[in-house]
């Protein structure tokens, strides 16, 4: 009996330890139900303006205020990913950052820009504008998206915007730093050549460009957590794991163009996804 209780105790402790270690507690970043949910809401099944638009409610719910709607599209036109996710410390997993009102007001996180100088302030002004972020009614946001996107190159997936074409055409010019003097690494020469990632069939081979990604991100966004830097050291790097939000899917399902836009990565594949 004693042995039994001791063992049960150990097993429970182990399981708990493993749960604590593994970030999501399951083998995929998202599970089937969540994936189904994502597939049903992203274009072409959902609205363009909603892609990459987050509802943040962990703290607001407790405080009894309307949750915050954060659109990536309006911000990424002005700043690259690295400004927010590297320099300002926003996590790339929703809910991780734990943003609080007092942090915003003291000039951290959203408050870095939303200070009344760069953008409308997190503090309340003469005209009440809390509901700009604590958004109950998204009509205004939708309208804003319409006018914002009308002039940008079209893509049939994601935001309905081909972001890299927009940058190349000079339609948008996101800033890569807030001029805080923080160093940005140069991209090593040998990484400037696009890499061919082999797949099981030649037709589905993938061309990966470090340089295109480096325009928006830093090395540490991907290395070493998502991709090891050992050559061929990344295990189980396959389409299924990608779709469940691992590897490329960590970004290419929620914010960067989604994976139903097959041709963007598999240039030799003929048809594109039909729902």
């Amino acid at each position: 009996m004693r042995l039994f209780s001791g063992t049960t105790y150990l097993v429970t402790a182990l399981l708990l330890a493993v749960l604590a270690v593994s970030p999501a507690g399951k083998s995929e970043a998202i599970d089937r139900a969540e994936l189904a949910n994502v597939m049903q809401t992203i274009p072409p099944n959902g609205a363009f303006w909603k892609y990459g638009t987050l509802e943040m409610r962990r703290k607001t719910k407790k405080a009894g205020v309307t949750s915050v709607i954060f659109p990536h599209w309006s911000h990424r036109a002005r700043y690259t990913c690295r400004v927010c996710h590297q320099d300002l410390g926003f996590s790339m997993r929703s809910g991780d950052t734990g943003i609080t009102r007092s942090q915003n007001v003291s000039g951290k996180y959203c408050g870095v820009c939303h200070n009344g100088v760069t953008a409308f302030s997190v503090k309340d002004g003469r005209v009440r504008h809390c509901d700009k972020c604590h958004t109950k009614d998204t009509k205004a946001l939708e309208q804003l998206f319409e006018s914002f996107s009308s002039d940008l190159p079209f893509a049939s997936f994601g935001n309905g915007i081909d972001w890299s074409a927009a940058i190349k055409a000079g339609k948008i010019a996101p800033l890569n730093s807030l001029n805080t003097g923080l160093p940005i690494l140069p991209l090593p020469d040998k990484l400037k050549v696009p890499m061919k990632l082999g797949t099981s069939a030649a037709r589905s081979d993938v061309i990966f460009s470090h340089e295109d990604h480096y325009f928006e991100l830093d090395c540490s966004a991907c290395h070493p957590d998502i991709f090891n830097i050992k050559k061929k050291g990344t295990k189980a790097f396959n389409m299924e794991n990608n779709i469940y939000g691992n590897y490329c899917g960590a970004c290419h399902m929620r914010v960067a163009f989604p994976m139903n836009d097959c041709k963007r990565c598999h240039p030799q594949m003929g048809g594109s996804y039909t729902p």
């Binding site: 270690v21 410390g89 996590s91 997993r93 991780d96 734990g98 957590d225 998502i226 295990k235 189980a236």
Partner: peptide, 16 residues
Amino acid sequence: VSLGWASGMMKKKLPP
């Protein structure tokens, strides 16, 4: 299983 879990995902970011 825990070894398998470790790959390909964003790690939890610790708050400061």
